[in-house]
């Protein structure tokens, strides 16, 4: 137990907190200054958390099987990029992306298919809303039984998990165009499909992207948890569950870091596409300048 390291970390934390409190009171001129401030404060906070973590685990001699210090995790990350990449490929590039595309895509097509039937919409919306709130992750063992241990079973779980949120949001989005706008399309003599593509789908885009953002997180969770029920000897969920069993905790943390990075990057890409597609929406419009 070396109290110096712990005290040093706590001292760093207090200093950084004071710096943040001071920074938060500043009112920089211009958009660029405000933006830099908005990035600096959370960045300092993040670094502080890491320093605190490192200081306490090293200083108080926390056993590494319980909580390894971040430097050890980073070392392990750098040393085992091969394993991590193989897991990433298995879980993310195959199960998550394919399942996500199939789930969201089929939900989108279903929403358009039932678009002309208000009866079906009234029936499917409450059911879809209900299913969205259920612990769908529980179907993982069934899917593993049906589709085997490899990635298709994980993709199937992802399909089911992403289907209903996308369906509900797309159906709601397709009703977002206002009656005045539809009337205008009508006076132009636009056909159903023209109205759909030129007015109603663009109007539905914010709703659809909202679903795509929710589903990007759900998809990763679904694929990883489904791997707890049986996998070939590769995959992020497999590595986490066996790493925990073998007390190989630093590898588990490295894998979690990969999951966190992949999840954030996936979400970020969806947000970027959303900004490009819905550039006209009020929530996006102000941010470019």
């Amino acid at each position: 137990m070396s109290w110096g390291v712990v005290l040093g970390a706590i001292g760093f934390w207090l200093a950084a907190w004071a710096l943040n409190a001071w920074l938060a009171r500043q009112t920089p001129k211009g958009a660029a200054g405000r933006r830099a401030l908005g990035l600096a404060v959370p960045a300092i906070f993040g670094v502080t958390l890491l320093v605190l973590w490192e200081g306490i685990t090293r200083g108080a001699n926390v056993p590494t099987v319980l909580l390894p210090p971040p430097s050890m995790i980073a070392e392990r990350f750098a040393a085992s990029t091969g394993i991590l990449w193989a897991d990433f490929k298995q879980t993310f590039l195959q199960a998550v992306l394919i399942g996500y595309a199939m789930g969201c895509g089929s939900a989108f097509l279903t929403a358009i298919a039932i678009d002309r039937s208000p009866f079906l919409q009234r029936g499917l919306l409450p059911v879809g809303n209900l299913i969205s709130a259920l612990p769908i992750i529980g179907i993982a063992p069934i899917m593993v039984m049906w589709f085997g241990f490899d990635w298709p079973s994980k993709a199937a779980v992802v399909v089911v998990m992403t289907f209903f949120p996308t369906l509900v949001n797309t159906v709601q989005g397709l009703q977002a165009a206002e009656a005045m706008q539809r009337d205008l399309m009508h006076t132009y003599g636009a056909s159903y499909w023209q109205t759909l593509f030129k007015l109603r789908l663009p109007a539905a885009a914010p709703f659809i992207f909202n679903a795509l953002k929710i589903c990007s997180t759900l998809a990763l969770i679904g694929a990883i948890v489904a791997e707890f029920f049986g996998t070939p000897i590769v995959g992020m969920g497999f590595r986490i569950s066996t790493g925990v069993g073998r007390m190989d905790i630093d590898l588990v943390w490295a894998e979690i870091a990969v999951a966190a990075l992949a999840g954030s990057a996936f979400y970020g890409v969806v947000v970027l596409i959303e900004r490009a597609v819905t550039f006209w929406h009020p929530s996006v419009r102000g941010q470019g300048s």
Binding site: G38, P42, I44, T217, I224
Partner: peptide, 19 residues
């Protein structure tokens, strides 16, 4: 607000269940 809130939002994108 400035230091914690962005992390709270970012943490939504992380598959927490994996831990």
């Amino acid at each position: 607000e400035m230091s914690v809130m962005p992390w709270v939002v970012a943490s939504q994108t992380i598959p927490i269940l994996a831990i």
